[in-house]
């Protein structure tokens, strides 16, 4: 029984023996992306889970060239890697960055914005686990409303994070980037197709992939893939692309699954009251109203 998706990517492993927690969504995203880009990918990783678990001397878990950047400098180091290799005459390579949500939306946003502005020929992948998980679950700009973290604890008066999630995908698209996309590790074939597409496009590419963290989200390690699917199915995340100045929605759930069921499965949302859930549902409906109005639709799942 052949699997077309598995046959379209490398059989080799480029991220192997790493020390990520069991069931880590981020490591699944990095592994899948590198299997698409192959041996000639040069990966840049800022401080974050994937650099912490990938480089434990002398354990070298990357089989391709990889380097750790400063926290804020993922995109600027990608620019340098791409320019340096090009200057030395290399043609067949891909400069790819793997930064977490904090490294992308908070600390690295200036460097990313600069790289998109220069339209450097790089791929920037943000694996979004919705908090600073590596340092022990602190709130980032991509932590959703209501989530409990160590810096936004859930108490009697304030129920976790009081601010909504930044819309990094549309921030990247607002630069008029050649290609931006959102994905989820729960729909791995869609993510792989988007990395394949990005590899063929010249200029800056930004892919935002939801990568659940069992430790930080408070779910069992074997739930990672299911919860990454459910966040799409209940409408709190969406699979879309931005290209040639227009947005395309890739998947429209026929009917949203229960948001409360999605939230209550996770330790970080268990404290939410019915009113909080109502706020989340209303913000989801507003978001989808905007999507239905401004995005064209093409089912590609």
């Amino acid at each position: 029984m052949a699997n077309k998706v598995a046959d379209s990517i490398s059989r080799e492993e480029f991220f192997y023996g790493h020390k990520a927690c069991a069931g880590c969504g981020g490591s699944l995203a990095v592994r899948a992306a590198l299997k698409v880009l192959g041996q000639n990918a040069v990966s840049v990783l800022p401080a974050g889970c994937m650099s912490a678990v990938g480089f434990n001397f002398p354990q070298l878990c990357f089989s391709n060239n990889s380097i750790i950047s400063t926290f804020a400098g993922t995109a600027s180091m990608l620019t340098g890697v791409e320019a340096g290799l090009r200057a030395r005459g290399y043609k067949d390579f891909t400069a790819v960055g793997f930064a977490g949500d904090g490294g992308t939306a908070d600390i690295g946003i200036q460097a990313l914005s600069g790289a998109i502005d220069r339209n450097d020929n790089i791929i920037y992948i943000c694996y979004d686990n919705e908090a600073y998980m590596n340092t022990g679950i602190q709130k980032s700009g991509l932590t959703p409303f209501g989530a409990r973290t160590t810096t936004t604890p859930a108490g009697a008066n304030i129920h976790g994070n009081i601010r909504p999630k930044k819309n990094m995908f549309e921030i990247a698209a607002a630069h008029d980037i050649p290609y931006a996309a959102t994905a989820s590790v729960g729909y791995i074939a869609d993510f792989i197709a988007k990395v394949q597409k990005a590899a063929q496009i010249k200029g800056t590419k930004y892919i935002h992939v939801i990568a659940p963290c069992p430790t930080g989200w408070g779910v069992a390690p074997d739930e990672t893939v299911d919860i990454a699917r459910e966040v799409v199915d209940c409408g709190l995340w969406y699979l879309a692309e931005y290209e040639n100045g227009g947005f395309t929605l890739d998947h429209k759930p026929k009917e949203f699954t229960d948001v409360a069921a999605y939230l209550k499965k996770q330790g970080r949302f268990r404290h939410l009251s019915d009113e909080d859930i109502q706020v989340i549902i209303e913000s989801r409906d507003r978001k989808w109203e905007h999507i239905n109005k401004t995005f064209s639709y093409k089912n590609s799942l």
Partner: peptide, 21 residues
Amino acid sequence: CVGCEQCYLYCPDGVISIKDG
């Protein structure tokens, strides 16, 4: 096992490979 390779695709550690289907 039917060799559909879903486990191979979704394993975060990449420890699953397909031998003889």
